[in-house]
Simulated scan of single mutants.
Amino acid sequence: MSAADRLTPLGVMVLSMLREDAMHPYEMIRLMRIRRDDRILSLTNGTFYHTVARLERAGLIASTGVDRDGNRPERTTYALTPAGSGAATAWVRRELVRTGRPTEFRVALAEAHDLARDDVIALLERRRALLGADAAERSQALVDARATGVPDQYLVEADREAALDAADLAWLDAFLGRLRDPDTLWGEHAGGKTSARYLAQRKAARE
Rank of each mutant, 00 (worst) to 15 (best):
A108W: 02
S195F: 03
E56N: 04
F105S: 04
R126I: 05
G84I: 08
V107N: 01
A90Q: 11
A205R: 03
S2Y: 10
A83Y: 11
R75A: 15
D118S: 15
G177N: 05
Y49M: 12
A22E: 14
A22H: 09
A129L: 12
V150Q: 02
A136H: 15
R126L: 11
T47F: 04
T81F: 01
A79G: 13
Q140I: 01
G100M: 03
V107S: 00
L55A: 06
L7C: 12
R197I: 07
R72K: 14
G187L: 06
L172R: 03
T103F: 02
E20C: 12
P102E: 05
G100S: 04
A163L: 13
L31H: 12
E207I: 09
R197C: 00
E207K: 13
E111D: 13
R75E: 10
A58V: 00
L115Q: 06
T64C: 12
V92H: 05
G86H: 03
L55W: 03
M23D: 13
A141W: 10
P182R: 04
K203T: 11
R127C: 05
A147M: 03
A108T: 04
A174H: 12
L41A: 07
Q140A: 14
L41H: 13
A116W: 10
A88Q: 09
D69S: 10
A136I: 10
R206A: 15
L7P: 10
M17V: 11
G84Y: 08
D173E: 14
A58Y: 01
L115I: 08
R206I: 02
L41K: 06
D5R: 13
L124S: 05
Q153Y: 15
T8A: 07
D144F: 02
A88G: 14
R19C: 12
A58Q: 07
Y78K: 03
G192P: 04
R33I: 12
V120W: 09
A133S: 13
V150K: 05
L131W: 07
R30N: 15
G65L: 04
M28D: 09
A87N: 07
A133E: 15
D152F: 02
E157Y: 10
A22M: 09
E207P: 01
R117S: 10
D38Q: 10
I61M: 09
A133F: 04
E74D: 02
R180D: 08
A112H: 03
A58P: 00
M13T: 06
R146E: 11
S195E: 01
G191C: 00
R68Y: 00
D37R: 12
Q201P: 06
Y78D: 07
Y78Q: 06
R180G: 03
V107D: 01
E104T: 01
L172N: 03
S139F: 15
T77K: 14
D37F: 12
Q153E: 15
L18S: 10
M13R: 06
L43A: 08
A90H: 08
H189T: 09
A88V: 02
S195K: 08
G46Q: 14
L164T: 13
L123W: 09
I121F: 13
A204C: 02
P73Q: 04
D181L: 07
G192I: 14
E74G: 13
R19G: 05
G86S: 14
V14D: 14
A133M: 11
R39F: 09
D134P: 02
